[in-house]
Structure formats: C-alpha cells, structure tokens
C-alpha cells in the first residue's frame, strides 16, 4: 500500500533521510521509533507530501507521491494525519473542525458532514463535546478529536506523528485506546511513537531509525523478544526508553 524506494532527503547539506526502502501493506500497523532527530517524523510527512524529498520514490497505492503534476489534494484525502500538537483549529467548534475539510475538500453537504462528524465523535467517545471549542478541552480530548477530524475524509491510511508526546501521562491511554480500536478495524497505520507498550500490543512491525537510516525493520515479535539479535544502536535505544 505504501512503498518507499531509495528515498533520500536533504536539508541543505544535512542528509536527513538516507536511502529509505520499505513497504507497508494494507491493514498493517507499523510503529516507527528512534532517537529524536532520527528522521522518523520527516519520513511519515513525506508520505502525504507535507515534506518534499529529493531522490527516490514513494508510492501510495502505486501512485507516485513525488509526481508534481498531480495535486496533493487527492492523495491527502486518502491519507489522514494526526499531529503531535493536535493542531485543532482554535477558532472553530469541535464539530466545525471535523466538518471543514469535508465541506471544502470533499464538497459534502452540511447535513451529511455533520452526520459523519457525529458518528466519529461517538466513536472516539466525545459525543457530548460537539459544540465545545478546542481550548476548553483536555489534551487527550483534543487529540481524539484530531483523530476524528482525520477520519472524516474516509482515509485508507492514517499517519500518526508522536500523537501522545504532548500529553500529560494520565491522558495517554485514552488516545492509545482509540488508536488500538482503529487498528483492530483494519486501518493501515504508520505511527511514530515512543510508546513501546502500544507497539508491542498493536504493531505488526517495528521500524527503528537512526540518523536518517532505517536500522531495523522487523516483526514486533522479533524486535522485542530477541534483543540480542538487534543492532547495537537499537538495543541502546530500547535500554534507554524501557529502563524506567
């Protein structure tokens, strides 16, 4: 469903993605982890063309993301994204947040969009918040609404960019629960996260990145159960984040 073929990206002289090659199949949940600055966020932002890359190919359902002739609009309808800082629109109510792209991008009718938004709010457990404004909600609630907003366009793929790292600890699970349910429904997901518990329970594969390189790309089972057969860099990283 998503194919990375020898993807390279540079910020000036900085080589931030080095020859990334991998495949994410339909229905897979791939957790991407690695130290900060390893290029993992940049990698998933390349999938929906929020970040350009200079070299190689990314194919989403066989269609090249880097093809400048095609507008990104169609691609982005099919690839939903959730951000670290939620990025809900503060000037719009919850339901307006979820309806906006449905209205202006998909040209759905107001009633249809609201109907869809209400079903999604129900799904993320925030049915009663449709009239609230983002700033009056907790971080966990905001992130669940951000997930609903992304789902409103009926994407086939969901990208999560550190969805829980801006949250207070007690709110992390409510967001992970929504993501777990989504995975159970068969959504194709790429998740950048440090939540190794989530990775162990939900991921079909774990990708470990360091310095722009994919160092490990293996099944969840292999990643967690056989650390001795992992690279030094991955072991060091795991030791650091699992030790407490």
């Amino acid at each position: 469903m998503i194919e990375f073929k020898h993807v390279n990206k540079y910020y000036g002289a900085n080589h931030v993605l080095r020859d990334v090659t991998m495949t994410v199949s339909r229905g897979e949940v791939v957790v991407v982890c690695g130290p900060s600055g390893s290029g993992k966020s940049t990698l998933i932002k390349c999938v929906n063309a929020l970040e350009p890359y200079q070299d190689g190919h990314i194919l989403v359902d066989g269609i090249d993301v880097g093809n400048k002739a095609r507008s990104a609009t169609h691609l982005r309808q099919r690839v939903g994204m959730v951000f670290q800082n939620f990025e809900l629109y503060p000037h719009l109510s919850v339901i307006e947040n979820i309806c906006l792209a449905q209205r202006v991008v998909l040209k759905r009718h107001a009633e249809e969009a609201r109907e869809r938004a209400r079903r999604l709010l129900d799904r993320v457990g925030l049915k009663d918040k449709e009239a609230a404004y983002p700033m009056n909600l907790s971080g966990g609630q905001q992130q669940r609404i951000a997930i609903a907003r992304a789902l409103a366009l009926d994407p086939e793929i969901m990208l999560f960019d550190e969805p829980t790292s801006a949250l207070d600890p007690e709110m992390i699970n409510e967001v992970l629960d929504v993501m777990t349910a989504l995975a159970a429904d068969g959504m194709t997901m790429m998740v950048v996260t440090h939540e190794m518990g989530f990775a162990r329970r939900v991921a079909s594969r774990v990708v470990f990145m360091d310095m722009g390189e994919v160092v490990e790309d293996c099944s969840t089972e292999a990643f967690f159960s056989h650390p001795q057969s992992r690279s030094d860099r991955a072991r060091l990283f795991l030791d650091k984040i699992l030790s407490h």
Binding site: R76, F83, V104, R149
Partner: peptide, 12 residues
C-alpha cells in the same frame, strides 16, 4: 502547524 494540518486534510 495550523497550515500543515489544513494541508494534511487536502485543502489547497
């Protein structure tokens, strides 16, 4: 991030 979020939902 606000513009990025809008971009990510396919807005021009």
């Amino acid at each position: 991030g606000q513009r990025m979020a809008a971009d990510a939902t396919g807005m021009n």
